[in-house]
Amino acid sequence: MVSAVVDVAYELSTRRREADDIPGALWTTHRGLLAAEESEMLHRQIFLAHHAAGDIDALREAAARLARIDEQLLGGVDMEAETAELLRNLLPRPITRAR
């Protein structure tokens, strides 16, 4: 049952985001996380929605929340490779100045 809830939340969130309904995408994804807080598939949807909205602060907060879940709930496991790669692509790189 939990995987069905996650799958439906993922699909609906994708559809809402593709329709430029970011609040709807986030609402749907957060409902799915009630069933499976540790679902990185759903967390990736949240990252994509915040990125689409241009809300980098919320994206960083969502990434930190997943890191806390991985640490507390799952006993310190690492993020899935797909999740880590997505965050590397979505988060802006710090600007370094040449000297």
Rank of each mutant, 00 (worst) to 15 (best):
A36I: 00
E18R: 13
M1K: 13
L86F: 06
A9Y: 06
L74D: 07
A62F: 02
H50F: 14
L48Y: 02
H51G: 01
L26A: 00
A25I: 03
P23G: 04
D7M: 09
P23M: 04
E61C: 04
D57W: 00
E37P: 10
A35R: 13
A98N: 09
E38R: 10
L48D: 08
R15Q: 14
R44A: 00
I95P: 03
A58W: 05
R65S: 13
R17H: 09
D20F: 08
H51F: 14
L74H: 08
A98I: 11
G75V: 04
T96P: 01
M41N: 11
A84E: 15
A25T: 02
L26R: 12
E82H: 11
D70M: 11
L87Y: 07
T29N: 05
V2P: 04
D7C: 00
L34H: 09
R93N: 07
E80L: 05
E80I: 01
Q45A: 03
P94N: 08
V8D: 14
L73S: 12
D21P: 02
E11D: 10
R17D: 04
A64G: 02
A84T: 08
A53T: 02
R60T: 02
R16Q: 14
A67I: 01
V5A: 15
E80R: 15
R31E: 13
V2G: 11
D78N: 13
A98Q: 10
R68C: 06
E82A: 14
T96F: 12
E40N: 07
